[in-house]
């Protein structure tokens, strides 16, 4: 007969992933980028009569903050829609009735979302860097005007230090990893959810609890003689929820702190292990799911 069936085929995986991305693109998901552009242009224009340090601070906060929020929303909403839509359109059945392992199907879908997030964050970063560069040039011409030549070097250094710094790169990388984590969690939620509304609500709750998990964890570790009930509650929160606040490097970077590569690698590693665990869990549930 024909060629033997491959246990795992990157071509099949890519077919599913690229199709997922294509679907999201044709659903005009990328229109949110207009909103992002509007936000950074708006905040740049609005801040013109502020000091240049303030302008850079707000531009960075705005851009990175909305990058983070947009990628979070995109990850949760696009992933939550995925399985219910596939079931509604029966494409889940047609694909799985082909010789496609469920692992490949679920990985392919997730990969499509990851590609969407990657492209979105990349485009937002490009817009952000362009805005930063334009602002820097504007501030520079303004600041250098009328200065004696021996002082311009200092001023230029000062302005450039407030504009683009290399530590923005790990910060954007963490925004991506965080959104990938949230996508994988949403996928896990959607494998046992009965509706996408349920999935979205669960993911939002996890997002908010994930930001206070650190408080629960630290008070669990700091108070060994708390009551049993509150211990169980604190343990439940700190074991089952990710510490999303730890995964956020933005505030430190914008404040002007350089990120050591050790801390970046540890933080990224933590985020990626969450991603893997949630993806594995989603696969396990999906593998035994009655469709």
């Amino acid at each position: 007969m024909d060629t033997p069936h491959k246990i795992f085929s990157p071509a099949r995986l890519w077919a599913i992933a690229s199709n997922t991305l294509l679907e999201l693109v044709r659903l005009k998901v990328f229109y949110f980028l207009l909103l992002f552009a509007l936000l950074i242009i708006g905040s740049s224009a609005f801040m013109l009569d502020f000091k240049f340090q303030e302008q850079f601070q707000v531009l960075k906060d705005m851009s990175l903050g909305s990058m983070s929020i947009f990628s979070w929303l995109l990850a949760v909403l696009a992933t939550a829609m995925l399985l219910p839509k596939e079931i509604e359109d029966r494409t889940l059945y047609t694909i799985l009735a082909k010789p496609v392992p469920r692992l490949e199907y679920i990985l392919g879908k997730l990969l499509g979302i990851l590609a969407l997030l990657f492209v979105s964050i990349l485009l937002m970063s490009v817009m952000f860097v362009i805005a930063l560069y334009i602002k820097q040039q504007a501030v520079l011409t303004d600041a250098v005007r009328g200065l004696p030549p021996e002082q311009t070097a200092d001023v230029i250094r000062g302005v450039k230090a407030s504009a683009f710094t290399v530590s923005l790169i790990p910060c954007v990388a963490m925004i991506y990893i965080k959104s990938a984590l949230l996508a994988s969690f949403t996928l896990l939620a959607s494998t046992f959810a009965t509706s996408s509304i349920f999935t979205i609500i669960v993911s939002f709750v996890v997002y908010f609890i994930g930001h206070v998990q650190g408080i629960a964890r630290e008070s669990l570790l700091a108070s060994p003689n708390a009551s049993a009930l509150s211990k169980v509650f604190l343990a439940f929160v700190s074991l089952l929820f990710p510490d999303l606040r730890l995964l956020n490097l933005t505030d430190d970077v914008v404040a002007g702190n350089a990120i050591s590569s050790a801390i970046f690698l540890k933080t990224a590693g933590l985020g990626l292990s969450y991603f893997c665990v949630y993806t594995l869990a989603a696969y396990l549930i999906f593998a035994f799911k009655e469709l």
């Binding site: 964890r217 570790l221 700190s238 074991l239 089952l240 510490d243 730890l246 665990v277 594995l280 869990a281």
Partner: peptide, 20 residues
């Protein structure tokens, strides 16, 4: 899956504490 998440939670908890 639930026990896997708990196990992972137990493993990552000290890591998160240290990282913080």
């Amino acid at each position: 899956v639930f026990s896997m998440l708990l196990l992972f939670g137990a493993a990552k908890l000290p890591f998160e504490h240290r990282l913080e």
